[in-house]
Design a protein around this nucleic acid. Structure first.
Length: 812
RNA sequence: GCCCGGAUGGCGAAAUCGGCAAACGCGAUGGUCUCAAACACCAUUGCCCGUGAGGGCUUGCGGGUUCGAUUCCCGCUCCGGGCACCA
């Protein structure tokens, strides 16, 4: 009797072996072809949760699978260790965020190891490590020098809960903070920005080169929001002019009024004496309403406005139209002013109805078109020299005219705004800038990096950053003149750290530069990036921007235009309909499974439960399915250790094992390649069932090669059990350094097939035939079938369709 | 409102190029082993009618194309996600 499968001992044993052996450590001069596999590095919130387990199971499977295919696989891991939770804990308990964070990293690392996921830990990167801070700051300074980082006074999103500003991307559609859920308010503050808008076109165009899920690309395209149109000047009766942006210059003849955002800089200039009280009252009222109310289509001031008293002249037809202010025009987009064409824009239509302004249709709507704006295509009407033209032609002709007359020009606008990166927080990477009374904002010289936050700080219950009150940190001298100066107390958004960590992984110990471009060129772009869909916009857009900017600055290889060639976004773990998370209190800790059924069983569950991209519903049944995975591993164990007994009277299945083995290799290899791990596991289960039947019928000795193949195919899924079994069957051997099994296509297909015989599309008979059968023979066999004769009931077949070797359909 | 997904047994799911719908697993039922249980093993398990042989029905709903549709086309319903006054 062979030894029982002692899960705990075996998993510990192999985890130690992998740690010590360095099988998954690679160097830049490795002769094997390179492959870079990366899971999004985690925020260290303590022991791993099921979301991590799912993510790292897929990642580890890729690493081991690619290694067996002969690649030098770069498999680094690190920690996104700056961030608010540690600081919030510090505010509550007084414990400094560093020890708090370090302790959580230890927990997380331990649970990652217990999963059996292998990493080249020599390359570990932590955002809060002084060396990492040095290079994050160094990169910031390169951006600053290149004009990609700048400071400006701007209305920004302030979260009262987090006591900090947020990037546009961090404000949800309902106007609340994506972290704390507080209602975000607008404040006018001096802030640091990255000029991501310089890359708007590239960020949009290069999406086409990426092997990413289409929906992630769509989200990024929408976020960038490119729109083509024209910008042109409208003369104001009695003097000045205002500039408007439109995507529909073809509808210009239908302009019946003009609207400015209430915050437009020319409001004062355009307001007549008589209208001044009304305008001032309106502007004041708008400013008292929150962003949420203004953005909401049903808000209390929806489509409200006021007449300025001024009139603009429509350059297309010389007509004078009134100039209004209205809440539905935004100050931050285009020029903050629009020509209103109610006939072809629903918002303008609604406003025109509310203020009794004229509506002129300039595009012929379809018949029966109702009482609303028509935004579709159609021939131009009421538009003089545009009449009869279709939309595209009319847009081109109107724009050409504007350019020829010198009134305006073609213009592309983006929804994307510059990235607001400064945060009024302590636990982040300090912005390396000093303020000198004489020289203004002065960059900290490279040789004084890193600028580190002090340890002797007191956290205030208000949440204000202690940096602002720490004399030792604040007081410094100006690098330019040596006079007393003060430090910048803002730190960087943690998305800055995660925007370049994947580059540092290629060359993590470099003390001269953030990384050597030559080494980066060997590994990057990442061949397979895996993470959650929640990073579809923020992290993935910022990282793409950093890669492009660093390449253009000569820091990264200049050919490196994109960081992540392939992206896979795994599904979320849900429980009772909502996302499984610490804040929802519905975590099911992986440790529970590590301690009982083991990591391999939990890994198999995550692979088997469904398509990797789909969400997982964690239900009452889940534990039973995980038990089922453990049962399957036990079956493989007994099979491979020769414990399966012959059974009296058992019948061996037809067909031979060699063919079934080749077919399995073909099937499972293909499933790995197309991320169909659930069917790969199912195929292995099915094969195991077949081998059981074979052994039970007395064919024991001949299953050896079949079992070895099964172990190889399962090695990336269940690394501990397969490693142990392989070592027992092949003393001194290591399953994970074996080559991936190959198959002979001739042997992978069956010798005989079950031919389906249909009459009028209904299955009437099944006949075992030679796999090489031709259509004529199929037809002959089918017509000879008694069941077919019965179904035909004497009628002659009108038509026979034969698809060798599987199907015949007889039409009567 | 716009843009993406999705809907298949009691449950998770499979069907890769238009060709046997429901592989694999969970659960359930019956059995073997056992003093008994657990474990393990074996068998059955989409629904309806039928003692049976067998027959009929079935992939959210309604149409269409086709010898043949879970798969393609048109029109809906519901669920999930993203965007949402971006001119």
């Amino acid at each position: 009797m062979a030894e029982a499968y002692d899960v705990q001992d075996i998993e510990r044993k192999w985890q130690a072996r992998w740690r010590e052996e360095g099988t998954y450590q690679v160097e830049a001069d490795d002769p094997r072809p390179p492959f870079y596999s990366l899971c999004m590095y985690p925020y260290p919130s303590g022991a791993a949760h099921q979301g991590h387990v799912r993510n790292y199971t897929f990642g580890d499977l890729i690493v081991r699978h690619r290694t067996m295919h002969g690649f030098a696989v770069l498999t680094p891991m690190g920690f996104d260790s700056f961030g608010l939770p540690a600081e919030n804990a510090a505010i509550k308990t007084g414990v400094h965020p560093r020890p708090f964070t370090d302790a959580r990293i230890v927990e997380l690392k331990e649970s990652i190891e217990r999963l059996g996921a292998v990493y080249d830990w020599r390359r570990e990167v932590r955002s809060h490590d002084p060396e990492y801070i040095r290079w994050t700051q160094w990169i910031f300074l390169r951006f600053l020098k290149a004009g990609l980082a700048y400071r400006k006074q701007a209305p920004v999103n302030w979260c009262p809960g987090c006591q900090t500003v947020l990037a546009n991307e961090q404000v949800l559609a309902d106007g609340t903070c994506d972290r704390s859920g507080d209602v975000v308010v607008k404040r006018n503050l001096e802030q640091w920005f990255f000029k991501i808008t310089d890359y708007a076109d590239q960020l949009l165009d290069d999406l086409a080169t990426l092997d990413w899920p289409e929906r992630v690309k769509v989200m990024q395209r929408n976020w960038i929001g490119r729109s083509e149109g024209a910008e042109f000047d409208l003369p104001i009766v009695g003097g000045t002019r205002i500039r408007v942006f439109t995507t529909r210059p073809d509808t210009s003849f239908g302009m019946t009024y003009v609207v400015l955002a209430p915050e437009h800089p020319q409001v004062d200039e355009l307001t007549t004496l008589a209208q001044r009280p009304a305008v001032e009252a309106f502007v004041a009222e708008v400013s008292t309403h929150s962003e949420v109310e203004r953005q909401s289509a049903e808000g209390p001031i929806n489509k409200r406005g006021v007449f300025t008293g001024s009139f603009a002249v429509n350059p297309f037809n010389g007509k004078e139209v009134p100039v209004y202010l209205a809440d539905y025009v935004l100050t931050g987009y285009g020029t903050g002013a629009i020509m209103a064409v109610p006939g072809e824009d629903q918002r303008d239509w609604d406003f025109a109805k509310a203020y009794d302004l004229p509506i002129i249709r300039t595009v012929q709507p379809p018949e029966d078109w109702g009482d609303s704006a028509y935004t579709g295509d159609g021939p131009a009407i009421n538009s003089q020299w545009l009449d009869g033209l279709e939309k595209a032609e009319a847009v081109a002709k109107a724009t050409d005219w504007l350019e020829a007359e010198g009134i305006g020009e073609r213009k592309v606008n983006f929804r994307l705004r510059d990235w607001l990166l400064s945060r009024q927080r302590f636990w982040g990477c300090p912005i390396p800038v000093v303020y000198c009374p004489e020289h203004g904002a002065v960059p900290v010289p490279d040789d004084q990096l890193p600028v580190l936050a002090p340890d002797d700080v007191e956290f205030r219950p208000t949440g204000e950053s202690p940096l602002r009150f720490h004399e030792g940190f604040l007081r410094t001298t100006c690098p330019t003149c040596g006079q007393p100066a003060t430090r910048e107390t803002d730190t960087m958004d943690t998305f800055v750290d995660s925007s370049w960590y994947y580059l540092r992984f290629a060359d993590p110990k470099n003390a001269e530069a953030p990384f050597d471009p030559a080494i980066v060129a060997k590994w990057l772009p990442v061949d397979q990036y895996i993470g959650g869909i929640e990073h579809a916009i923020l992290h993935l857009m910022y990282a793409r921007f950093f890669t492009k900017a660093l390449a253009d600055l000569g820091v990264a290889p200049k050919e490196l235009r994109e960081p992540f060639a392939r992206l896979f976004t795994q599904g979320m773990i849900r429980m009772g309909g909502s996302k499984m998370s610490k804040s929802k209190g519905n975590l099911v800790a992986p440790a529970k499974y590590f301690d009982t059924v083991g990591a391999d069983a939990l890994r198999l569950f995550h692979l088997f439960v469904g398509p990797p991209a789909d969400d997982v519903d964690w239900s009452e049944q889940t534990d039973e399915v995980i038990d089922g995975c453990a049962r399957f591993l036990n079956r493989v164990w007994r099979l491979a250790t020769g414990e399966v007994a012959t059974v009296e009277g058992a019948v061996a299945p037809a067909g031979d094992l060699e063919r079934a083995t080749h077919a399995l290799v073909a099937k499972v290899s293909d499933d790995y390649d197309r991320w169909s791990y659930n069917t790969a596991v199912a195929a292995c289960m099915e094969f195991t069932n077949l081998l059981y039947k074979h052994v039970q019928a007395g064919g024991g000795g001949s299953v050896g090669p079949a079992v070895d193949t099964l172990l190889l195919l399962m090695a990336p899924m269940a690394p501990h059990a397969t490693a142990e079994l392989w070592e027992r069957r092949h003393p001194g051997g290591h399953v994970h350094t074996q080559a991936w099994p190959t198959f002979d296509p001739a042997l992978a297909s069956a010798l005989t097939e079950t031919m389906i015989v249909q009459v009028n599309g209904k299955v009437r008979d099944r006949i075992e035939v030679d796999a090489g059968i031709d259509a004529a023979e199929m037809e002959r066999l089918a017509l000879a079938s008694a069941k077919v004769q019965a179904a035909l009931d004497g009628a002659p077949p009108r038509k026979v369709i034969a698809r060798p070797p599987k199907l015949v359909n007889i039409v009567r």
